[in-house]
Design a protein around this nucleic acid. Structure first.
Length: 527
RNA sequence: GGCUCGGUAGCUCAGCUGGUUAGAGCGUGGGAUUCAUAACCCCAAGGUCGGGAGUUCAAGUCUCCCCCGAGCCA
């Protein structure tokens, strides 16, 4: 079965911010994990490019909407490459293929009697792309979210008959695993319990959008078309000579339904309520899970242009490297909760966990093994037994990492991996091979102890593969092991789960000259 | 205004269906050690579990009220 997962399709109103990077990075870790387990994975990301806001932003910049979208989505594309995001697809909703899918989808919905005309009158926020409830007779009503003036609209729009799906949606979100984390489920349930109202799916007088077939002058409401991007992404030509005209009928062979939509908590309603109803209407399967993670603040403050405290993901990557940032965000912030980016803590954790605990463990052990055992992995001796303390620690770590990654508990996975490294360091200190070695006739003991720690290091590297792939590769290189393949369409000649078995490190294989696998972060000045 | 989710050591958080001296990591202080990236290992200090009342033999853990923060709906 295909494991399909999605990031949101990011709105190209502005250049990428750290929040988008956070979501994407988490998805990348999950995708890599699933690939390592041997699943066929489709990680979808991309950009949402329609709507009035985009049209106006483009105008303000003196660009055509398409040129503006080309520019911003290229930035996203490039950023994900720099972050080594292993997305299998990158879909843009201004892609002509997408228009075709939207039309097909709309055809199904309309044929099902779920599209009706209605007059919509009220105050509209362009930033939200939403009608607001009547703001009690103010002269210049403001959007409570965006603090900007609302615009009066009076137009005939097409509505999707969401109200027909009340019961089905209630049943869906009653399933405990559908909305994650569970703490956000009640909120959505309360919203649905108030009664679902039809929502408009078209706009008039908005050229920058996908035209609604059979309804001149209407373009699709940006959300209606954006969500469908997930489907278009799956129907992309797979480059094996087939014609690229796959339609909705082929979705089930292309990886639909998604196993999980990973999103920010702000768009939970669209994904957990509107989207499933749309899919039901079109006769398509529903995603298995919607995971709404929290938001990032910085040093306790909301990030924003007006405060001037925005952390630019590109700059962050350049100064600190992908491993450091990935580790900090995934290891320190419970995925699902809001989190606070604190520079001191960032530096402390990266240095302690990655450089000191993990990196130094490998470094010190490798140095000893090379010195006393002719540059090779020493004979395992007693260390190959499954009841060796480090073998047991390793199995305990593995038994935590896998289920934690399965449920997007990256923090738990990181901690369990780290725990193995801590155990290995502790073992080394109690065994003290450096002093045992000074006495004659203890070679075997030292060999066995060093082997055990090297083997533990190998397993730490393997467990870290999904979270910090580069560091994992560097560690494996130090152990003269092949790096893990966890990118798109990659497989490993020896499956990951098999590589995770204790004792596979080959005795006698040469150890490269030790070089720190993780440099300590030394930041001069604020990020 | 209604609702949701939080408020546990300086910081980030664990604490399941109520039950021995409330835990971890970071930070801080001390010790030990020298294989190693001034790294590792060990130990310690630090909490009246937001406040108040109640239920109970027993409450961080249940009930009610209040305060603070984030958010959803109106």
């Amino acid at each position: 079965m295909t494991y399909t997962l999605t990031t949101p399709l990011y709105y190209v109103n502005d250049k990428p911010h750290l929040g988008s990077a956070y979501t994407t990075l988490a998805c990348d870790a999950l995708a890599r994990f699933q690939r390592l387990k041997g699943e066929e994975v489709v990680l979808i990301t991309g950009c949402d490019e329609h709507g009035q806001k985009i049209q106006r932003t483009a105008e303000a910049a003196g660009l055509s909407p398409q040129a503006h979208c080309d520019r911003i989505s290229a930035e996203y594309h490039q950023l994900w490459q720099q972050w080594q995001i292993s997305n299998d697809r990158f879909i843009r909703t201004s892609d002509p293929r997408h228009r075709r899918i939207v039309h097909e989808f709309f055809g199904r919905v309309e044929a099902n009697g779920d599209v009706v005309e209605g007059r919509q009158q009220g105050w509209y926020c362009v930033a939200c792309e939403e009608f607001k409830d009547d703001p009690a007779g103010a002269l210049d009503p403001q959007c409570p979210v965006h603090q900007r003036s609302l615009e009066w609209r009076d137009e005939v729009n097409l509505f999707f008959r969401l109200s027909r799906y009340q019961e089905q949606i209630e049943a869906l979100i009653a399933q405990p695993e559908f909305i994650q984390p569970a703490s956000r489920r009640r909120e959505v349930q309360n919203f649905v319990a108030q009664g679902l109202r039809d929502f408009s799916i078209s706009r008039v007088n908005l050229p920058w959008g996908i035209p609604v077939p059979g309804h001149d002058g209407h373009t699709f409401y940006v959300w209606f078309d954006a969500l469908l991007g997930y489907l278009t992404a799956l129907l992309e030509s797979q480059g094996d000579g087939e014609t690229s005209e796959a339609g909705l009928g082929e979705l089930s062979q292309r990886g639909w339904p998604a196993q999980v939509h990973v999103i920010g908590k702000d768009i939970l309603r669209f994904h957990a309520v509107y989207w499933p109803a749309m899919l039901l209407s079109a006769g398509l399967e529903l995603p298995k899970q919607v995971f709404g993670h929290g938001f990032l603040t910085r040093e306790g403050q909301k990030m924003g242009k007006s405060i001037g405290n925005v952390l630019d993901p590109e700059a962050l990557l350049e100064r600190c490297g992908a491993d450091a940032v990935r580790w900090y965000l995934l290891r320190d912030i419970p995925f699902g909760d809001d989190g606070d980016f604190q520079q001191q803590r960032f530096v402390d954790l990266v240095n302690n966990d990655l450089a000191n605990t993990i990196g130094n463990m490998l470094n010190r052990t490798s140095a000893m093994a090379r010195r006393w055992f002719e540059g090779t992995v020493p004979p395992a001796g007693a260390a190959q037994n499954a009841d060796h303390p480090l073998a047991q620690a390793a199995n305990a770590a593995i038994a935590l990492v896998i289920p934690n990654l399965e449920t997007l508990d990256f923090r738990g996975a990181a901690e369990a991996s780290l725990q193995l490294a801590i155990a290995a360091n502790g073992f080394l200190n109690t065994q003290a091979p450096w002093s045992v070695m000074k006495k004659e006739g203890n070679q075997d003991q030292v060999a066995s102890d060093l082997y055990a720690v090297l083997e533990a290091a190998r397993l730490v590297a393997l467990l870290l593969g999904p979270l910090v792939p580069d560091l994992s590769a560097r560690m494996l290189e130090q152990l003269a092991q092949a790096p893990l393949n966890s990118g798109p369409n990659q497989t490993n000649s020896i499956p990951w789960l098999q590589q995770l078995q204790w004792g596979r490190l080959a005795v006698g294989s040469p150890l490269p000259e030790p070089a720190p696998v993780m440099a300590r972060l030394e930041l001069d000045g604020p990020l």
